[in-house]
Simulated scan of single mutants.
Amino acid sequence: MVDRSPGDRLFDALVYALLSIVVLVVLYPLVFVLSASVSDPAAVMKGQVWLVPKDWTWVGYSRIFQSGEIVTGYRNTIVYTVVGTAINLAMTICAAYPLSRKDFHGRNAIMAFAVFTMFFSGGLIPNYLLVKNLGMLDTIWALVIPNAVAVWNIVIMRTFFQTSIPHEVQESASIDGCTDFQILFRIVLPLSLPIIAVMVLFYSVAHWNAFFNALIYLTDRDHYPLQLLLREILILGEMQEMVDMSDASLAQKLLEVEAIKYAMVVVANLPVLLLYPFLQKYFVKGVMIGAIKG
């Protein structure tokens, strides 16, 4: 063991203290929302819930799973996330792999055009008119096609292909008679599990949390994702201060809305929280390797 100087020990103590504060700041909102979701909504509104639940109740969760609209929204969100992520991943791989090949002529010019779209876009109204003219309004395609690929993710995956998979391996496979598709599916993709996991995490979280495109393009409530319904509940909760609470029936409904709000936050974020631990090691490795150089 190497003796550490008092200055080093003091530095370590300050680092651990700072990291402990950061952990508390990050964890407290999560613990509070979880506690509030199983506490009496009246106690939550009075500010009596900090960390430990008070007057346990499952009314928020029971109302969620009794509501056909919320269950439908949950199902819609799962469908949008799975289909959208699959399209995103396929499009990103198909764009990043050719752009990573040294023998693909014009790849720098194509990459420059793609990066240009990161800084300039048509805007909301042209996008809406395009989606409308394509007949995609009020369909799943309005949520997954316009955002089928993210240029930044193409840059990350292209950089991973360039830095982590030797070009000589691909040349050897080509000499042995492999086609470009065989090289991609038999060599490149099996060696790219870390970056693929990163892309799945990025895209799936983006789809799961998205509500703005649904707000713009969807009118049928049967097609609403969970996040759009959660937005309505949160807006309704913010209106409580403007409502006369002397009406007992109305006050009870607003208390139920308060319980549903916290329960919805827990239910909406639970899949992402369960998914991340399994992808964490790939996430760290893929981001670090994909960010070495552009």
Rank of each mutant, 00 (worst) to 15 (best):
L143S: 04
L51F: 14
L215N: 09
S164P: 00
G286P: 07
D40H: 10
M157K: 03
Y16P: 01
A263S: 15
L191D: 05
G123A: 07
F104T: 10
V151A: 03
T72K: 14
D220P: 02
T81Q: 08
T92A: 02
Y80I: 15
V52I: 15
C178I: 07
P194R: 11
M91L: 13
T92I: 13
A214P: 04
A42P: 00
G237I: 02
H105K: 14
S62P: 00
F212P: 01
F119K: 09
A17G: 14
K46R: 15
A13K: 10
Q162S: 09
F104H: 08
Y282M: 11
A112L: 14
F181P: 01
T77N: 12
L279H: 04
S20P: 01
L234P: 00
D176L: 09
G7A: 13
G123N: 07
V26M: 15
T163C: 01
L137G: 04
V169F: 12
D12T: 09
F113I: 11
R75T: 13
M1G: 13
Q252L: 09
L99R: 03
L228T: 07
R231Q: 12
S100C: 06
D103N: 11
A173Q: 08
I87M: 10
V38F: 04
L270K: 04
G237L: 01
N108P: 00
M1E: 11
Y282A: 12
L201Q: 05
V169Q: 12
V266A: 11
N133M: 05
A43N: 10
P271K: 07
P277S: 08
Y16D: 10
I110D: 03
L201I: 13
N76F: 09
I235T: 11
E171G: 02
N127Y: 01
K293W: 03
S37K: 08
V243A: 10
K281R: 15
I233S: 01
F120G: 02
R4N: 00
S67N: 14
A36V: 11
I292C: 07
V26E: 07
V52M: 09
S37I: 10
V188G: 00
T179D: 07
A95N: 02
V31L: 15
T163F: 03
S192E: 01
T219G: 11
K293N: 10
A148K: 09
T163Q: 13
